[in-house]
Design a protein around this nucleic acid. Sequence first.
DNA 1: TTGCATGCATTAGAGCTCTAACATACATTC
DNA 2: GAATGTATGTTAGAGCTCTAATGCATGCAA
Lengths: 145, 145
Amino acid sequence: MTSMAPEERIGSHVKRAEQALLAAKNAACKPAAVTVPQYAALLWLAEKPGISAAALARLCGVTPPTMNTVLKNLQERGFIERTPHEWHRNVLETRLTDAGRAAMELADAGAVRVERALAAAFTEEERQLLIELLGRCAEALDAER
Amino acid sequence: MTSMAPEERIGSHVKRAEQALLAAKNAACKPAAVTVPQYAALLWLAEKPGISAAALARLCGVTPPTMNTVLKNLQERGFIERTPHEWHRNVLETRLTDAGRAAMELADAGAVRVERALAAAFTEEERQLLIELLGRCAEALDAER
DNA sequence: TTGCATGCATTAGAGCTCTAACATACATTC
DNA sequence: GAATGTATGTTAGAGCTCTAATGCATGCAA
Protein backbone atom coordinates (compact mmCIF):
# COMPACT_ATOMS: atom_id res chain seq x y z
CA MET A 1 0.00 0.00 0.00
CA THR A 2 2.27 2.75 -1.22
CA SER A 3 -0.69 4.82 -2.33
CA MET A 4 -2.23 7.85 -0.64
CA ALA A 5 -5.82 8.70 0.13
CA PRO A 6 -7.22 11.53 -1.99
CA GLU A 7 -8.29 13.40 1.13
CA GLU A 8 -4.69 13.53 2.32
CA ARG A 9 -3.42 14.87 -0.97
CA ILE A 10 -3.04 18.62 -0.85
CA GLY A 11 -3.24 18.58 -4.63
CA SER A 12 -6.81 17.31 -4.54
CA HIS A 13 -7.92 20.33 -2.57
CA VAL A 14 -5.99 22.75 -4.75
CA LYS A 15 -7.61 21.25 -7.80
CA ARG A 16 -11.05 21.46 -6.29
CA ALA A 17 -10.63 25.12 -5.40
CA GLU A 18 -9.31 25.88 -8.88
CA GLN A 19 -12.26 24.12 -10.49
CA ALA A 20 -14.72 26.09 -8.41
CA LEU A 21 -12.85 29.27 -9.24
CA LEU A 22 -12.93 28.56 -12.95
CA ALA A 23 -16.63 27.73 -12.89
CA ALA A 24 -17.46 30.91 -10.99
CA LYS A 25 -15.37 33.13 -13.25
CA ASN A 26 -16.77 31.45 -16.30
CA ALA A 27 -20.28 32.28 -15.17
CA ALA A 28 -19.17 35.83 -14.39
CA CYS A 29 -17.71 36.27 -17.88
CA LYS A 30 -20.75 34.86 -19.61
CA PRO A 31 -22.65 38.18 -19.94
CA ALA A 32 -19.67 39.57 -21.86
CA ALA A 33 -19.58 36.46 -24.08
CA VAL A 34 -15.91 35.83 -23.39
CA THR A 35 -14.08 32.92 -21.81
CA VAL A 36 -11.90 33.25 -18.75
CA PRO A 37 -8.61 33.09 -20.71
CA GLN A 38 -9.99 35.66 -23.13
CA TYR A 39 -10.91 37.92 -20.22
CA ALA A 40 -7.44 37.55 -18.74
CA ALA A 41 -5.86 38.56 -22.03
CA LEU A 42 -8.21 41.53 -22.44
CA LEU A 43 -7.47 42.70 -18.90
CA TRP A 44 -3.72 42.76 -19.47
CA LEU A 45 -4.16 44.34 -22.88
CA ALA A 46 -6.05 47.23 -21.30
CA GLU A 47 -3.13 47.82 -18.99
CA LYS A 48 -0.35 47.32 -21.54
CA PRO A 49 -1.48 48.43 -25.00
CA GLY A 50 0.69 47.27 -27.89
CA ILE A 51 2.21 44.39 -25.95
CA SER A 52 3.56 41.42 -27.92
CA ALA A 53 1.78 38.09 -27.86
CA ALA A 54 4.73 36.36 -26.24
CA ALA A 55 4.91 38.91 -23.43
CA LEU A 56 1.16 38.65 -22.97
CA ALA A 57 1.51 34.89 -22.75
CA ARG A 58 4.04 35.28 -19.94
CA LEU A 59 1.75 37.61 -18.02
CA CYS A 60 -1.19 35.24 -18.38
CA GLY A 61 0.91 32.21 -17.47
CA VAL A 62 0.39 30.30 -20.70
CA THR A 63 2.62 29.32 -23.62
CA PRO A 64 2.87 31.44 -26.80
CA PRO A 65 0.89 28.98 -28.96
CA THR A 66 -1.88 29.00 -26.39
CA MET A 67 -2.01 32.78 -26.41
CA ASN A 68 -2.00 32.63 -30.19
CA THR A 69 -5.17 30.55 -30.09
CA VAL A 70 -6.84 32.92 -27.66
CA LEU A 71 -5.86 36.00 -29.65
CA LYS A 72 -7.06 34.44 -32.87
CA ASN A 73 -10.51 33.99 -31.39
CA LEU A 74 -10.52 37.51 -29.96
CA GLN A 75 -9.51 38.93 -33.33
CA GLU A 76 -12.28 37.05 -35.13
CA ARG A 77 -14.73 38.64 -32.72
CA GLY A 78 -13.28 42.08 -33.40
CA PHE A 79 -12.17 42.58 -29.79
CA ILE A 80 -8.53 43.22 -30.65
CA GLU A 81 -6.44 44.37 -33.59
CA ARG A 82 -2.88 43.39 -34.38
CA THR A 83 -0.54 45.61 -36.36
CA PRO A 84 3.14 45.10 -37.31
CA HIS A 85 5.65 46.85 -35.08
CA GLU A 86 7.43 49.85 -36.58
CA TRP A 87 10.98 48.58 -36.12
CA HIS A 88 10.76 44.95 -35.14
CA ARG A 89 8.90 43.72 -38.16
CA ASN A 90 8.52 40.29 -36.62
CA VAL A 91 6.53 41.62 -33.70
CA LEU A 92 2.79 42.22 -33.84
CA GLU A 93 1.44 44.94 -31.61
CA THR A 94 -1.86 43.96 -30.07
CA ARG A 95 -4.43 46.49 -28.95
CA LEU A 96 -8.00 46.50 -27.70
CA THR A 97 -10.75 47.77 -29.96
CA ASP A 98 -13.62 49.75 -28.48
CA ALA A 99 -15.72 46.60 -28.48
CA GLY A 100 -12.87 44.75 -26.78
CA ARG A 101 -12.63 47.36 -24.06
CA ALA A 102 -16.37 47.23 -23.48
CA ALA A 103 -16.31 43.44 -23.23
CA MET A 104 -13.36 43.59 -20.85
CA GLU A 105 -15.12 46.05 -18.56
CA LEU A 106 -18.28 43.98 -18.49
CA ALA A 107 -16.39 40.78 -17.74
CA ASP A 108 -14.21 42.56 -15.19
CA ALA A 109 -17.24 43.65 -13.21
CA GLY A 110 -18.27 40.01 -12.88
CA ALA A 111 -14.75 38.83 -12.09
CA VAL A 112 -14.25 41.44 -9.40
CA ARG A 113 -17.58 40.46 -7.90
CA VAL A 114 -16.37 36.87 -7.67
CA GLU A 115 -13.07 37.94 -6.14
CA ARG A 116 -14.83 40.07 -3.55
CA ALA A 117 -17.12 37.21 -2.62
CA LEU A 118 -14.09 34.97 -2.30
CA ALA A 119 -12.21 37.47 -0.17
CA ALA A 120 -15.26 37.89 2.04
CA ALA A 121 -14.94 34.26 3.10
CA PHE A 122 -11.76 35.12 5.01
CA THR A 123 -10.41 37.57 7.53
CA GLU A 124 -7.56 39.75 6.36
CA GLU A 125 -5.11 37.57 8.29
CA GLU A 126 -6.47 34.39 6.77
CA ARG A 127 -6.35 35.88 3.31
CA GLN A 128 -2.68 36.75 3.60
CA LEU A 129 -1.93 33.39 5.17
CA LEU A 130 -3.67 31.56 2.35
CA ILE A 131 -1.74 33.52 -0.24
CA GLU A 132 1.49 32.78 1.57
CA LEU A 133 0.75 29.06 1.76
CA LEU A 134 -0.27 28.90 -1.90
CA GLY A 135 2.96 30.64 -2.82
CA ARG A 136 4.89 27.99 -0.96
CA CYS A 137 2.94 25.33 -2.85
CA ALA A 138 3.96 26.74 -6.22
CA GLU A 139 7.53 27.13 -5.03
CA ALA A 140 7.82 23.56 -3.78
CA LEU A 141 6.21 22.15 -6.90
CA ASP A 142 8.37 24.14 -9.28
CA ALA A 143 11.44 22.96 -7.40
CA GLU A 144 10.31 19.36 -7.82
CA ARG A 145 10.63 19.53 -11.58
CA MET B 1 -10.89 52.37 -11.10
CA THR B 2 -13.17 49.50 -10.16
CA SER B 3 -10.53 46.94 -11.05
CA MET B 4 -8.35 44.93 -8.72
CA ALA B 5 -4.62 44.26 -8.79
CA PRO B 6 -3.74 40.66 -9.71
CA GLU B 7 -1.64 40.33 -6.58
CA GLU B 8 -4.67 41.03 -4.42
CA ARG B 9 -6.79 38.45 -6.19
CA ILE B 10 -6.81 35.19 -4.31
CA GLY B 11 -7.76 33.51 -7.55
CA SER B 12 -4.45 34.42 -9.13
CA HIS B 13 -2.59 32.53 -6.46
CA VAL B 14 -4.89 29.54 -6.59
CA LYS B 15 -4.40 29.37 -10.32
CA ARG B 16 -0.66 29.61 -10.03
CA ALA B 17 -0.51 26.79 -7.49
CA GLU B 18 -2.76 24.65 -9.67
CA GLN B 19 -0.60 25.26 -12.71
CA ALA B 20 2.54 24.27 -10.83
CA LEU B 21 0.73 21.20 -9.51
CA LEU B 22 -0.36 20.15 -12.97
CA ALA B 23 3.09 20.66 -14.42
CA ALA B 24 4.70 18.62 -11.64
CA LYS B 25 2.20 15.78 -11.90
CA ASN B 26 2.48 15.80 -15.64
CA ALA B 27 6.23 15.30 -15.38
CA ALA B 28 5.67 12.58 -12.77
CA CYS B 29 3.26 10.72 -15.07
CA LYS B 30 5.53 10.98 -18.09
CA PRO B 31 7.48 7.74 -17.42
CA ALA B 32 4.16 5.88 -17.52
CA ALA B 33 3.20 7.65 -20.76
CA VAL B 34 -0.13 8.78 -19.36
CA THR B 35 -1.60 12.21 -18.80
CA VAL B 36 -2.75 13.47 -15.42
CA PRO B 37 -6.47 12.97 -16.17
CA GLN B 38 -5.69 9.49 -17.46
CA TYR B 39 -3.79 8.72 -14.26
CA ALA B 40 -6.68 9.97 -12.16
CA ALA B 41 -9.09 7.71 -14.00
CA LEU B 42 -6.78 4.70 -13.71
CA LEU B 43 -6.34 5.32 -9.98
CA TRP B 44 -10.08 5.30 -9.33
CA LEU B 45 -10.58 2.32 -11.62
CA ALA B 46 -8.12 0.32 -9.56
CA GLU B 47 -10.18 1.03 -6.47
CA LYS B 48 -13.62 0.55 -8.04
CA PRO B 49 -13.48 -2.07 -10.80
CA GLY B 50 -16.49 -2.18 -13.11
CA ILE B 51 -17.56 1.36 -12.34
CA SER B 52 -19.63 3.22 -14.94
CA ALA B 53 -18.14 6.09 -16.92
CA ALA B 54 -20.59 8.56 -15.45
CA ALA B 55 -19.75 7.56 -11.88
CA LEU B 56 -16.07 7.73 -12.71
CA ALA B 57 -16.59 11.21 -14.12
CA ARG B 58 -18.15 12.31 -10.85
CA LEU B 59 -15.24 10.91 -8.84
CA CYS B 60 -12.70 12.66 -11.05
CA GLY B 61 -14.65 15.91 -11.03
CA VAL B 62 -15.24 16.13 -14.77
CA THR B 63 -18.28 15.83 -17.03
CA PRO B 64 -19.29 12.54 -18.69
CA PRO B 65 -18.23 13.63 -22.19
CA THR B 66 -14.82 14.56 -20.84
CA MET B 67 -14.45 11.18 -19.18
CA ASN B 68 -15.58 9.62 -22.43
CA THR B 69 -12.66 11.27 -24.21
CA VAL B 70 -10.19 10.14 -21.59
CA LEU B 71 -11.50 6.57 -21.59
CA LYS B 72 -11.42 6.42 -25.37
CA ASN B 73 -7.73 7.23 -25.33
CA LEU B 74 -7.06 4.75 -22.54
CA GLN B 75 -8.92 2.05 -24.44
CA GLU B 76 -6.95 2.71 -27.62
CA ARG B 77 -3.79 2.19 -25.61
CA GLY B 78 -5.14 -1.06 -24.19
CA PHE B 79 -5.11 0.19 -20.59
CA ILE B 80 -8.79 -0.50 -19.97
CA GLU B 81 -11.57 -2.69 -21.30
CA ARG B 82 -15.27 -1.91 -21.38
CA THR B 83 -17.93 -4.60 -21.36
CA PRO B 84 -21.73 -4.29 -21.35
CA HIS B 85 -23.41 -4.66 -17.98
CA GLU B 86 -25.33 -7.85 -17.37
CA TRP B 87 -28.69 -6.24 -16.59
CA HIS B 88 -28.45 -2.62 -17.50
CA ARG B 89 -27.57 -3.08 -21.14
CA ASN B 90 -26.98 0.62 -21.56
CA VAL B 91 -24.19 0.66 -18.98
CA LEU B 92 -20.60 -0.19 -19.82
CA GLU B 93 -18.48 -1.70 -17.08
CA THR B 94 -14.94 -0.39 -17.21
CA ARG B 95 -11.97 -2.33 -15.86
CA LEU B 96 -8.20 -2.06 -15.84
CA THR B 97 -6.16 -4.40 -17.99
CA ASP B 98 -2.85 -5.73 -16.69
CA ALA B 99 -1.07 -3.09 -18.74
CA GLY B 100 -3.38 -0.47 -17.30
CA ARG B 101 -2.64 -1.53 -13.75
CA ALA B 102 1.08 -1.44 -14.43
CA ALA B 103 0.84 2.05 -15.92
CA MET B 104 -1.24 3.21 -12.97
CA GLU B 105 1.29 1.92 -10.46
CA LEU B 106 4.17 3.54 -12.28
CA ALA B 107 2.37 6.86 -12.52
CA ASP B 108 1.19 6.61 -8.92
CA ALA B 109 4.74 6.29 -7.69
CA GLY B 110 5.57 9.60 -9.35
CA ALA B 111 2.38 11.27 -8.18
CA VAL B 112 2.91 10.20 -4.58
CA ARG B 113 6.46 11.51 -4.77
CA VAL B 114 5.12 14.88 -5.83
CA GLU B 115 2.53 14.89 -3.06
CA ARG B 116 5.14 14.01 -0.47
CA ALA B 117 7.41 16.80 -1.69
CA LEU B 118 4.46 19.17 -1.50
CA ALA B 119 3.52 18.05 2.00
CA ALA B 120 7.13 18.43 3.09
CA ALA B 121 6.89 22.17 2.44
CA PHE B 122 4.52 22.51 5.39
CA THR B 123 4.21 21.59 9.03
CA GLU B 124 1.31 19.34 9.90
CA GLU B 125 -0.58 22.33 11.30
CA GLU B 126 -0.01 24.37 8.18
CA ARG B 127 -1.08 21.48 5.98
CA GLN B 128 -4.40 21.12 7.76
CA LEU B 129 -4.89 24.87 7.76
CA LEU B 130 -4.23 25.09 4.04
CA ILE B 131 -6.72 22.32 3.34
CA GLU B 132 -9.28 24.05 5.52
CA LEU B 133 -8.81 27.38 3.77
CA LEU B 134 -8.97 25.79 0.33
CA GLY B 135 -12.18 24.08 1.33
CA ARG B 136 -13.66 27.42 2.28
CA CYS B 137 -12.59 28.77 -1.11
CA ALA B 138 -14.48 26.08 -2.97
CA GLU B 139 -17.47 26.54 -0.70
CA ALA B 140 -17.63 30.30 -1.18
CA LEU B 141 -17.18 30.01 -4.93
CA ASP B 142 -19.81 27.33 -5.35
CA ALA B 143 -22.24 29.46 -3.37
CA GLU B 144 -21.56 32.38 -5.70
CA ARG B 145 -23.01 30.57 -8.68
C1' DT C 1 -50.25 -0.20 -20.93
C1' DT C 2 -48.82 4.23 -21.46
C1' DG C 3 -46.33 7.94 -19.95
C1' DC C 4 -42.77 10.14 -17.16
C1' DA C 5 -38.51 10.44 -14.69
C1' DT C 6 -33.93 9.08 -14.07
C1' DG C 7 -29.55 7.74 -15.50
C1' DC C 8 -26.00 6.23 -18.88
C1' DA C 9 -23.65 6.81 -23.23
C1' DT C 10 -22.53 9.28 -27.16
C1' DT C 11 -21.98 12.91 -30.73
C1' DA C 12 -21.21 17.65 -32.22
C1' DG C 13 -19.01 21.85 -31.72
C1' DA C 14 -16.21 25.31 -29.61
C1' DG C 15 -12.31 26.44 -27.08
C1' DC C 16 -8.06 25.89 -24.18
C1' DT C 17 -3.63 23.74 -23.40
C1' DC C 18 0.66 21.66 -24.09
C1' DT C 19 5.15 19.99 -26.66
C1' DA C 20 7.76 20.05 -30.78
C1' DA C 21 9.30 22.09 -34.69
C1' DC C 22 10.28 25.68 -37.89
C1' DA C 23 10.80 30.42 -39.71
C1' DT C 24 11.87 35.18 -39.07
C1' DA C 25 14.06 39.25 -37.20
C1' DC C 26 17.08 41.70 -34.42
C1' DA C 27 21.43 42.02 -31.42
C1' DT C 28 25.90 40.79 -30.05
C1' DT C 29 30.22 39.03 -30.74
C1' DC C 30 34.15 37.41 -33.32
C1' DG D 1 30.79 40.92 -42.63
C1' DA D 2 29.55 36.36 -40.59
C1' DA D 3 28.18 33.44 -36.82
C1' DT D 4 25.84 32.97 -32.73
C1' DG D 5 22.20 33.99 -29.57
C1' DT D 6 17.83 35.64 -28.19
C1' DA D 7 13.11 36.67 -28.93
C1' DT D 8 8.90 36.51 -31.62
C1' DG D 9 5.47 34.32 -34.36
C1' DT D 10 3.44 30.44 -36.38
C1' DT D 11 1.99 25.64 -37.64
C1' DA D 12 1.09 20.80 -36.51
C1' DG D 13 -0.56 17.40 -33.57
C1' DA D 14 -2.39 15.44 -29.42
C1' DG D 15 -5.28 15.80 -25.63
C1' DC D 16 -8.52 17.86 -22.18
C1' DT D 17 -12.68 20.46 -21.17
C1' DC D 18 -17.10 22.31 -21.43
C1' DT D 19 -22.26 22.97 -23.04
C1' DA D 20 -26.01 21.25 -25.69
C1' DA D 21 -28.46 17.77 -27.78
C1' DT D 22 -29.73 13.01 -28.83
C1' DG D 23 -30.72 8.08 -28.13
C1' DC D 24 -31.43 4.27 -25.24
C1' DA D 25 -32.63 1.58 -21.13
C1' DT D 26 -34.73 1.00 -16.71
C1' DG D 27 -38.11 1.78 -13.20
C1' DC D 28 -42.14 3.96 -11.35
C1' DA D 29 -46.73 5.79 -11.53
C1' DA D 30 -51.16 6.96 -13.52
